[in-house]
Design a protein around this nucleic acid. Sequence first.
DNA 1: CGGGGGGTTGATCTCCTTCAATCAACGTGG
DNA 2: CCACGTTGATTGAAGGAGATCAACCCCCCG
Lengths: 248, 248
Amino acid sequence: MLNERNLAVPPECAECPIRHRAVCARCESDELEQLDEIKYYRKFEAGQTVIWSGDQMDFVGSVVSGIATLTQTMEDGRTQMVGLLLPSDFVGRPGRNSAAYNVVATTDLVMCCFRKTPFETMMSHTPHIAQRLLEMTLDELDAAREWMLVLGRKTAREKIASLLSIIARRDATLHLRGVEGPLVFDLPLTREAMADYLGLTLETVSRQISALKRDGVIQLEGKRHVTIPDMGRLLEEAGDDADGGVFV
Amino acid sequence: MLNERNLAVPPECAECPIRHRAVCARCESDELEQLDEIKYYRKFEAGQTVIWSGDQMDFVGSVVSGIATLTQTMEDGRTQMVGLLLPSDFVGRPGRNSAAYNVVATTDLVMCCFRKTPFETMMSHTPHIAQRLLEMTLDELDAAREWMLVLGRKTAREKIASLLSIIARRDATLHLRGVEGPLVFDLPLTREAMADYLGLTLETVSRQISALKRDGVIQLEGKRHVTIPDMGRLLEEAGDDADGGVFV
DNA sequence: CGGGGGGTTGATCTCCTTCAATCAACGTGG
DNA sequence: CCACGTTGATTGAAGGAGATCAACCCCCCG
């Protein structure tokens, strides 16, 4: 039911849009051929749950297109997002067989999945995969630690500004624009998802977005379309050093 | 000045107390010999800063004994702890040359350091190191994500209970005791460090610890010596599932 | 037309922060 | 040996940032 092969999906690794950033980025052509044998594509619709926390994981994989979230939930329903998965990001942990988090597609999503056991054995033979995975994991750890500062010490306004600047920055690098001049992008998350990301309620998210708009830090068209007239200003609001940015 | 070789330090990798858990855990004896050539020990006193964020990093290394913290600071002084480094934990990121966080010794500390460039070249030749480092980094990422839930969604009381249960659990595994019966340990952190860990003020930390004591969840002798009569009760207070625990 | 999902805004409440006083333990120098 | 300063911790009173509860809007879709 969930697993439907689809024509819109890249047929060949050589033409894969995430080829140069994903876990397979360092692989040689023969290694790609090996991967090809254990890989398959899966499509999910916006809102669908990809994996439930605690479920058996028989695959790992990469996000090819779309956005997914990693969330934890307490018994009483409080939920915290702990990861935002963008194209090229890796899902699953080699060596673990049950999922630790919920993975939910927030937009329509295509994943390139590898059967877990073959992937693990392949990883132990080909250092290129493990090397790249280490690099990606270290990056994720850095991002998680940055986020711990946001969650633990920033005000609601700073949290919103931080999230907006992160999305803006990623969007700028994705579209290869500089950080000069006004930035324009669409929010990929609902107010509720933003709240789960930031450890806030959706009402507070809404209020703070309105406040930033009222103060001219951002401009809004509709609910999702954002313009940042002055990125430096936004970074100030985020409590970050306005010049260097987060990663020095 | 900071670098004083010391007799109390393990002279041989074979006798090293963290040998089986550190980044070198998987190394063969010839690999250990190689490591031996680029390694040196450093001692720090409680309170000393090991590395300043932004500083040039010319080494990476493992905590041999003692405890250190990883913290981030905003310009106005707000600080958030983003890692608690225990014996066998790894410090530094191969591939990055300036430190991203402050590392501070909270107790007297011994580190086994490797010169960074030789370590990096060695890592690219010996998969055993990269494999182990990947495993350790994935564990840290899990811990960071667990902590994001604590920071974002838990109440002050739950935060304290969470921290206590984490310390208790680690202490129990360290001393190879079961989780049955009362647990006894010393807090390795000041109230202020606990506050920085939990995204609270030290006053709130103090109040909540008093409250947990008053309610019989914990017992205190002095400021640091803690007894947990009923671990299940503490886990309930932490908002965790009382049976399975954090990692299912 | 009705209904539902996503979003905004208002009023009130509460948990945590802030500011401040106090205390115990400890070391140090007169 | 005692006065003193320091550091870590506790406790109290007051205030505020964000949560909670609730009403309402907009827009799309069946």
